[in-house]
Design a protein around this nucleic acid. Structure first.
Lengths: 369, 369
DNA sequence: AACTATTCTGCAATCGAATGCACGGATCGA
DNA sequence: TCGATCCGTGCATTCGATTGCAGAATAGTT
């Protein structure tokens, strides 16, 4: 039957390399004795009502029997809708994005949309090319989880062009773009509050990149948490480039070497990897975590609960965030967006073994180190 | 929820017209004073030579100035090529797939192709629907990293339909489909050899699902490794469903309770998560790793090098595997496939702290064998 | 029975780019 | 100078599904 359909079309097709045998609406129409337009109507839930039930059933039966699948490229061209959402992710290698992607797809797929994932590593100038690709593919909307301040203009142009956009995970101040983000300030606050409640008084942060609003918010929250106890984080000039283990190690080593860590009993690393690196550097310097220095992370990445010590951290509801982002982009695509929505999800404290009360010795010994 | 979306679309249909301002070849043609066909030719590397240089430059200049991007949906329809490769991944949440995806995209993107990732969790019957989706989207080929024996018929039908397919990471015996896989048997062999060389004599496996060829191969290799020293793994009837931490914990607890572990000094878990669970169960039973029992994992997942103890494991070149899979699918799409290629990448042993020589006390127990 | 209202379905145009074909013009050789 | 060859470009069709419009068929009304 499939062969029959292919033959009937025209000889040219066989001449071309025809990898997949295609069954078109025309084939189904012939089989059911109707016009192709009736086939289209019989299968479209929104048009179905216009077709006589008897005819519709006959068409649906024929379509099922032939294994007909409407060609989405043709449909997209005509309807000016690709049923595709571009999704920009900083790195597939970083496991925390897995749940986000999962959440996004979980929301998109039931509505017939697919996410088209593209990797745009931080500091790689890949955002613009990726957006061009997505434009060329005529995606209906874009979910961006990679925004950095240097991308502000590019993103502004993107929304100005009329493309529905939702930022998630990260966002940028001063852009009128819908966003679905974790309440990072609350996360930072929870971290600070946790360390304060354990009895720490001299604390500092290992910062992520400052040009990512997310990290800036964690800092603000952390300061809020300390301020509630009339405390202030120890200031220092160390900065990180990419928030990974090696950077955490490097920065902590510098802090130790420069004496900034003297008397410090707790550290808030702005993500888990930085925290892991910091713990390693502490260990290399003969200090133990949490006995000498407590360390908090952020993200609750996979496996950090199995580390030594198990990492205290802040967990973000990544799946939920992905689903909310998916819902928002679908709203935007369907023109339901009311202004630029801001959806916030709440992180939670996950206290584990890497944070504990400061050692008795720590207070007086501060100068000794 | 679907209803809600549909309702709103109806009502707003007119309001949301022309979301993205589209520049077409016609616009560029008008601007450059040529016919749209000349625009097409001027921008297609393969047709470019047919256009007078002067004209081509004029067109390219106009295209650049207007920010013209050929509409890939239209192009796809006409050329019968979507420049899209479907990629089936078991789970975005499992971090080891990150590098694989990265590798695939690294190979596809320079050639103008994009990977369309779909999650098809083990044991979820999502494979067929996912394939239908990809068919509807007219992807040019499919990379499948999720094959299970129950999928054999579905995959057979898929290739019979003419769709270029490459299996990676996992594969199925008896299917004439190109594949790019890790040499799992070698991996299992390396694991066995490593434990043998440390002096272990009584060992057993914590198996992954048996209906995945990959896991079966690891077993074969492990047995080879032991056989080289005239040893055999201790047999037992424990099986796992999904290869995760909780299953590892459960199985090891059962093995301990049933006495199968008596005298066993080393365990080969068929992936890292199972190994981590096993170590936890051992610890719960008052046994230490590696002092009482050495444990090996498989995969070298992110962060397992920071565990306590750092997990000895087998590392697969995931990025390379992804790139090779990308290369193979492009070959197949372009009709260059010679038979069904088999590409094998080599894993490496990563010895860490979770494996060590068996304790003195263990030896006396061995002769019992 | 005549006529209008209502279904139902076919027709043909459209979405935007790609491409076989053909024509006008330039180039070249004799 | 004339005809043969190329070259470069325009024309028109095609890819497959969708959809406004209109005509045919049926139902409903007086």
């Amino acid at each position: 039957m499939i062969g029959e359909g292919a033959d009937a079309r025209d000889g040219i097709r066989t001449a071309l390399r025809s990898p997949v045998s295609l069954i078109t609406a025309k084939d189904v129409a012939r089989e059911a004795g109707v016009h192709p337009s009736t086939v289209s109507r019989s299968l479209d839930p929104e048009q179905m009502a216009r077709v006589k039930t008897e005819t519709r059933l006959r068409v649906q039966e024929a379509a099922g029997r032939l294994g007909y699948r409407p060609d989405l490229t043709a449909s997209s061209l005509r309807r000016q809708r690709t049923m595709t959402i571009g999704v920009l992710i900083p790195s597939f290698g970083n496991p925390i994005y897995g749940d986000l992607i999962h959440g996004i797809n979980a929301e998109l797929e039931p509505h017939g949309y697919q996410g088209l994932m593209i990797e745009t590593p931080d500091g790689s100038d890949r955002l613009s090319p990726a957006l061009e690709t997505l434009r060329g593919r005529r995606v209906d909307g874009i979910i961006c989880a990679t925004s950095r301040s240097e991308d502000r203009q590019v993103l502004r142009d993107l929304v100005d062009s009329g493309m529905p956009v939702v930022l998630t995970l990260r966002w940028l101040a001063g852009l009128a773009i819908a966003r679905v983000v974790n309440d990072d300030r609350l996360g930072g606050f929870l971290a600070g509050q946790h360390l304060v409640s354990l009895g720490h008084r001299r604390m500092l942060e290992i910062p992520g990149s400052e040009d990512i609003e997310t990290f800036a918010d964690r800092s603000r929250g952390f300061r809020d948490g300390l301020a509630a106890a009339a405390l202030t984080p120890i200031r220092h000039g160390e900065r990180t480039t990419t928030p990974d283990v090696s950077e955490g190690r490097r920065v902590m080593a510098n802090l130790l070497a420069s004496g900034v860590m003297d008397g410090v009993t707790a550290v808030f690393a702005q993500n888990d990897l930085l925290g892991i690196g910091a713990i390693e550097a502490l260990r290399s310097a003969g200090l133990q975590c949490p006995e000498d220095v407590s360390v908090m992370g952020f993200n609750d990445s996979p496996l950090v609960d199995h580390l030594d010590p198990a990492l205290s951290t802040i967990a973000m509801p990544m799946v939920e965030m992905g689903m909310r982002a998916g819902r928002e982009i679908l709203r935007a695509v369907n023109g339901q967006d009311t202004e630029h929505d801001v959806v916030t999800v709440r992180p939670t404290l996950v206290p584990r073994a890497s944070t504990s009360a400061p050692a008795q010795a720590a207070r007086p010994a501060a100068p000794a180190d």
